[in-house]
Write a protein that binds this DNA or RNA. Structure first.
Lengths: 347, 347
DNA sequence: GAGGACGCTGCAAACGTATGCATAATGCTG
DNA sequence: CAGCATTATGCATACGTTTGCAGCGTCCTC
């Protein structure tokens, strides 16, 4: 059916479509373009559409971009594709952008501000229409610059409080509260927190959420039981878990700001013969892929990664379509997922 | 220093540079372009360069691409970013391409031939200079078309035997032999195989490797112990493991063609109360991230994913630089990683 | 039935760059 | 000093679109 009998090598252009349909290229352009279709006779439009189908016409975004000053491309800045957090977010972004005719250009910054800058410039050179960034630190020089250069900017997974930039994230505070409430309901009272870096909103908000939940249970947060990591990694989790253990302060549970930090805890436990959840419960954050398969299966906070991605793309599309309103902050709902790394204390 | 005093919104064009330098745009173009600089007077060239610097000129790759039919972009076709196999490969590709001044454009095909075709066309429309594909089936209509269209093509992770297309993969046959040899050395004799889809070279070659290893141990492969999956997924692994069990034929080990299939086996075991490795050993393939953390930690075949990616990028760059020689097939070394999912038979 | 309004389509000029060809200026050869 | 090769630059066109403007026919109105 859909098989075309044209030579595959020959790119088919608007002119070809026009010739087949027996109209002027300009008319073909209008017929093919959703927004200008109304300008052309319904019947002619159909003829053009059929012709386009027949010759397998695909518009050339390069040429179009030259004319319209838009590349229909948005840059996506992420720290590292290997972090299992990001692939689903990316899929959400790409899938949403794709149906709108946009393509995404991905760059890994490895959390290096230098590379971040380079990548941004490279993207600007490639004429991206906007940038979606998952790399926001609360220090945001870079983004001031991006915005100043007239590029649309949307943050994903992280946000910048007090800065007028749209963002799509999970409700990190609430998520962390959910985690702590779960522990409290199990009967835990001495709960430690391994926070993420506080200059990321994810680290900061989850830390706040932790404090809120502890306080609203009528407890007093013990500063000795809160440690702050320098990165969301397993090795940091292991290091800080060891530090908590070494401090000698009693605790029966750890709320980690992310699953990788939680995995680091499990490593330290294994090394020192601490039973989880027997002696210490652990709750993670993110519900990363395969979290259910770890040893023990990880209790954690589920985040709708894909939806966060597509929400970010949606926000970007709004900006690109010229919505000039206030920046919007989309907060998606987290959910507790109980598995086997948490249990009543002393249990 | 480098700060420009031009309005950020106003993109500065070749014409601006020419005006400031007092030359024709064509001359400015030649002066700015490395390859054609020799055509213009040294002094004039310098003047143009200074002018370009002064007005903060950034060439517009869109316009350039329209003219030259090159975009310094290569498309990368993968089935699904969420499959943990691909991120490290992608990083390898991107990192290698980046230092050569190329950018990559990623598309997820979800193994849907329809989408594959669409994505290819979209990439062609975006003027990619070449395509690196991880999606090759042994049926390769699509690639015939890509090659016919004059695009450079390189396969990664998979290859097409008998087809003159360069590829970078692991030595899948050898890897699977390693896995089986390990089982045999442990004392296993009745070894089952859950093969991947045989229309992927990964599935096919590993199946071949399995047969080779069994035979060269002086054993006779039992067709009843070989099942073929329809996809490299956990659910397929679970389904086929159940089928093996239901067949009633005795076996003490399973060599799965990939880690996800192996995980599926573990699921079925858990469901039916089969001890692993006590009653049945399982060996996977790929050494996916976190394989060491599963329950039990998975014995598997390690593959240098990142290096496979960068090798593929290297092959692509060779083609793009105009090397017209024979296609090359780069095979990287697999390595056995012994963990806890394998043990001598009978406990 | 003449004039205007309207709906549809074609014409042509852009967008920013690259490049074959023509041309002007210069140097060289005999 | 004529003639030619060489060098350096300008001119014009093309890449595939989009879009303001003009033109054409048709229908309606008075």
């Amino acid at each position: 059916m859909a098989a075309s009998n044209t030579r595959p090598g020959a790119r088919t252009t608007l002119r070809d479509v026009a010739r087949v349909a027996g109209v002027h290229p300009a008319t073909a352009s209008r017929a093919l373009n959703e927004e200008t279709r109304s300008l052309v006779n319904e019947e002619t439009a159909q003829r053009v559409l059929r012709a386009a189908e027949e010759v397998g016409y695909r518009p050339n975004p390069i040429a179009r971009g030259l004319k319209t000053n838009r590349s229909y491309t948005v840059g996506v800045l992420i720290p590292d594709l290997n972090n299992p957090l990001f692939p689903p977010i990316l899929r959400g972004i790409e899938d949403r952008l794709e149906v709108a005719g946009y393509t995404s250009l991905i760059a890994n910054t490895d959390n290096d501000p230098e590379r971040e800058l380079l990548d941004t410039q490279a993207m600007r050179a490639r004429q991206v229409d906007g940038i979606i960034a998952a790399t926001a630190r609360r220090d945001h020089r870079l983004f001031d610059e991006v915005v100043a250069s007239g590029l649309d900017l949307v943050l994903v997974n992280r946000w910048l409080p007090g800065v007028p930039i749209s963002s799509a994230t999970a409700d990190d505070r609430k998520g962390q509260r959910l985690a702590v409430q779960h522990l409290i309901e199990l009967g835990h009272r001495a709960i430690a927190h391994i926070a993420g870096p506080l200059d990321y909103s994810t680290g900061f908000d989850r830390h706040e959420g932790f404090l809120e939940a502890v306080r609203s249970a009528g407890l007093d947060p013990d500063p000795e039981l809160v440690v702050v990591s320098e990165a969301f990694t397993e090795s940091e989790g292991a290091r800080l878990c060891a530090r908590l253990l070494d401090r000698g302060r009693e605790f029966t549970a750890i709320a980690a700001a992310n699953d990788l930090l939680a995995l680091g805890c499990l490593d330290t436990f294994a090394e020192r013969g601490v039973q989880c959840p027997g002696e210490v419960s652990v709750v993670g954050f993110n519900d990363m892929p395969f979290a259910a398969r770890f040893q023990p299966p990880l209790t954690t906070i589920h985040i709708p990664h894909y939806e966060i991605g597509s929400a970010a793309a949606e926000l970007m599309l709004e900006r690109l379509q010229g919505a000039d309103g206030e920046p919007r902050h989309v907060r998606l709902e987290p959910a507790l997922v109980v598995r086997d790394s948490t249990a009543p204390p002393g249990g």
